[in-house]
Design a protein around this nucleic acid. Structure first.
Lengths: 149, 149
DNA sequence: TTAATCCCTATTAAGTTACTCGGGATTAGG
DNA sequence: CCTAATCCCGAGTAACTTAATAGGGATTAA
């Protein structure tokens, strides 16, 4: 029941962009350095985020990435769904595929639905702005704050 | 973010035992057949459940397994923790290991803690008795109900 | 023109998952 | 006591996933 590094790094990269929202494009190199993530690997992840419309890119020298929307309009759930696939503890309660044909006979289904809903609730109610508030608090009390783990 | 078959099969096996609570030991063969799970594989899982004190075994002919406690006293969280490890979306918020030394600098930590807590809440508030109630409802309206997906 | 940057596809080592296989120990019933 | 049913245990393994790495092409500011 762990989120993979795709989701983890994705959230951290998006948080980094959110902390610099409105300051023009930030290069992959900077984000990767600040967050301590492999640049090449992050490139793949941010590529997915771009295709999903969560970030926009500026090509060429002095180019980089920036948030497509304001931090308060970006639920973490959108980042996770883009990088990790649908939020669902089991295939049978995956809204997108909904492969379980026996749902009307399965007593454990209610459990997985409840779990899925509670996970989606947290991830969709928390936005990048929420994380930024937390980031500001940390910045305020610690000079060496680095935006990352 | 999926639960593996270990957790899935474990919950289904425990649910099966709960539906037959107080009827003496049930053999692995019966459970595996009823739930459509490989007998040898389930043996490994139920071995862990036994070591964790969730089921008791009776050896020899006519032996089998039974719940160590009444269904209403068995939170699903206990089954999941036994078979999947600690409930935590990320290592850094795993209560048992708590490996993240930078927790006072990490802005995303709050998010993972919230997610962990909401998952634990659902899994610990739902018990085998909850699933049995659901099972009885299904049984009532469908003769071919089989206790499984 | 050059260096910085985004963009894309392929490959790969290590780890995890979901089993299978084979055999030993225990016990109810005949 | 014998036998079949059952629990118990550890080793092996094929397929899949993860977390990268590698190498190069396209675009653009200076």
């Amino acid at each position: 029941m762990r989120i993979s590094t795709r989701g983890e790094y994705g959230v951290r990269a998006m948080f980094d962009l959110a902390m610099h929202y409105g300051q023009g494009p930030i290069s992959l190199k900077i984000i990767a350095e600040r967050q301590g993530i492999s640049e090449h690997y992050l490139e793949q992840l941010i590529g997915s985020l771009r295709k999903a419309g969560l970030v926009t890119s500026v090509r060429g020298a002095q180019g980089g990435y920036q948030l497509a929307n304001a931090p308060e309009d970006v639920p973490i759930g959108d980042i996770i769904r883009t990088l990790e696939g649908p939020i669902a503890p089991m295939d049978c309660v995956d809204i997108e595929s909904s492969s379980c044909q026996q749902f009307n006979r399965c007593a454990t289904r209610v459990l997985w639905e409840r779990l899925r809903d509670s996970m989606e609730k947290v991830l969709d109610e928390t936005t990048l702005a929420t994380l930024c508030q937390e980031g500001m608090k940390l910045q305020a009390k610690d000079d060496s704050f680095m935006y990352h783990i």
